[in-house]
């Protein structure tokens, strides 16, 4: 189990580092604040492209497990809450699993 989680952690760290900053600059700042305004039809075509869906799903799953892994160790070691390790595992990895399921539903089945 540990090697698998480690693989998800490093893959997620890489995917998050490469893609999240630019995506957050665009969708968190540039588009809402009107610095750039690509039209909806174009964005729709890009997002619904199967390759985009696959990349977004991969990014979501990997990044969520990466975050879960780090948060787990922050809680257990950083905050000295070793007693809470089982609960923190359940919340962190369970949250990543649930988030992945939501992402899969949204990107593959919903639209």
């Amino acid at each position: 189990m540990e090697p698998l989680l480690w693989l998800l952690f490093s893959g997620g760290g890489m995917a998050a580092a490469l893609l999240i900053p630019i995506l957050l600059v665009l969708f968190g700042l540039a588009l809402p604040l009107g610095w750039l305004s690509p039209d909806h039809a174009h964005l729709h075509a890009v997002v619904t492209n199967p390759l985009t869906r696959l990349v977004l799903l991969g990014l979501s799953v990997l990044a969520l497990f990466h975050a879960a892994h780090r948060l787990r160790y922050t809680i257990v070691d950083g905050l000295q809450l070793k007693r809470l390790a089982p609960a923190s595992d359940a919340v962190c990895y369970g949250g990543a699993l649930a988030g992945s399921a939501v992402a899969a539903y949204l990107l593959v089945f919903a639209y």
Binding site: G12, A16, I20, L23, L24, F27, G28, L56, L59, S60, A63, L64, H66, A67, A68, H69, R70, L71, Y73, T74, G78, G95, G99, V102, A103, L106, L107
Partner: peptide
């Protein structure tokens, strides 16, 4: 290590 919270938020926001 706390950047993990930001990564989690970013995924939710981007979805």
């Amino acid at each position: 290590e706390l950047s993990s919270v930001a990564v989690g938020w970013s995924v939710v926001f981007l979805l």
